[in-house]
Simulated assay, not measured.
Amino acid sequence: MGLLEKRAVKEYQDNKYNALVSEINQIAGYEIEFDVKWDTLAVNDHSHLFEEGFTKVYFMPVINALKEITKDDLGKEALKETLKKIIVKNEEGVSYYESAYSYSEKVLTIDHEPFTNMDNVSDRSNFLVEFLSSKM
């Protein structure tokens, strides 16, 4: 990760990330722990895409899915019992959402390339609703 990528990650962390995590926790109704492997997300020569890619690939699908899951008290309770932590990374080079999500011991892991299929937000969101709901 070069200087451009480091600056873009810091800008994202300072201006976008905290607000997104806050929104996620507000929707959930409790604090979900996040572990973002920033060094794996910061692909060289793509710093101009960080804000759009990180938001669309990782955070908007979670926000959309949690809104759907928590639309009633049953969903809110199930989520609270099921999800404690979210890990975000790009280690396996996954470009399709069907293979990007895994779940174990109350931890959702998202391992997806940050700039591939960025605009498939609704597909990722819908898949994540079904995926998480099947674990509840």
Results as ranks from 00 to 15, higher is better:
residue 5 E to W: 05
residue 14 D to S: 08
residue 35 D to Q: 12
residue 13 Q to L: 07
residue 10 K to Y: 01
residue 24 I to C: 11
residue 9 V to I: 15
residue 10 K to M: 04
residue 5 E to P: 05
residue 11 E to A: 12
residue 33 E to L: 02
residue 5 E to K: 10
residue 30 Y to V: 07
residue 36 V to D: 09
residue 1 M to L: 13
residue 19 A to S: 14
residue 31 E to N: 15
residue 36 V to C: 11
residue 21 V to E: 14
residue 29 G to K: 10
residue 31 E to C: 01
residue 5 E to D: 13
residue 33 E to I: 05
residue 15 N to C: 09
residue 30 Y to F: 15
residue 19 A to M: 11
residue 20 L to R: 05
residue 25 N to P: 08
residue 37 K to Y: 07
residue 12 Y to C: 07
residue 25 N to C: 12
residue 3 L to Y: 05
residue 4 L to Y: 08
residue 4 L to F: 10
residue 28 A to T: 02
residue 36 V to S: 07
residue 7 R to P: 00
residue 37 K to G: 00
residue 29 G to Q: 11
residue 13 Q to P: 00
residue 25 N to Q: 09
residue 30 Y to Q: 09
residue 2 G to N: 13
residue 15 N to V: 02
residue 34 F to R: 04
residue 29 G to F: 09
residue 3 L to N: 06
residue 33 E to R: 07
residue 23 E to Q: 15
residue 20 L to N: 02
residue 8 A to V: 11
residue 15 N to H: 11
residue 38 W to P: 04
residue 18 N to P: 00
residue 19 A to L: 12
residue 1 M to V: 13
residue 2 G to E: 04
residue 2 G to R: 09
residue 20 L to Q: 08
residue 7 R to I: 14
residue 27 I to Q: 02
residue 25 N to M: 08
residue 9 V to P: 04
residue 35 D to G: 02
residue 32 I to R: 03
residue 6 K to S: 14
residue 16 K to W: 01
residue 8 A to G: 11
residue 27 I to R: 06
residue 36 V to P: 07
residue 10 K to W: 01
residue 4 L to R: 10
residue 6 K to Q: 15
residue 5 E to N: 07
residue 23 E to M: 08
residue 10 K to S: 08
residue 12 Y to W: 06
residue 23 E to Y: 01
residue 8 A to H: 10
residue 22 S to W: 01
residue 12 Y to T: 03
residue 33 E to G: 00
residue 1 M to H: 12
residue 6 K to F: 06
residue 14 D to H: 00
residue 26 Q to V: 10
residue 31 E to W: 00
residue 26 Q to I: 05
residue 27 I to K: 02
residue 16 K to E: 01
residue 9 V to C: 05
residue 6 K to R: 15
residue 9 V to F: 06
residue 38 W to V: 05
residue 8 A to T: 11
residue 32 I to G: 00
residue 36 V to R: 06
residue 10 K to P: 00
residue 38 W to H: 12
residue 30 Y to W: 05
residue 36 V to K: 07
residue 32 I to D: 02
residue 24 I to G: 11
residue 1 M to Y: 12
residue 2 G to F: 04
residue 3 L to V: 08
residue 5 E to M: 11
residue 34 F to Y: 09
residue 31 E to L: 00
residue 28 A to E: 04
residue 8 A to D: 13
residue 5 E to F: 05
residue 14 D to F: 02
residue 32 I to K: 06
residue 34 F to C: 02
residue 38 W to K: 08
residue 1 M to T: 14
residue 7 R to N: 14
residue 35 D to C: 04
residue 36 V to W: 03
residue 38 W to I: 08
residue 17 Y to I: 01
residue 20 L to M: 06
residue 1 M to R: 12
residue 28 A to K: 04
residue 7 R to T: 13
residue 30 Y to T: 09
residue 14 D to K: 10
residue 26 Q to G: 05
residue 1 M to D: 11
residue 16 K to L: 04
residue 21 V to G: 02
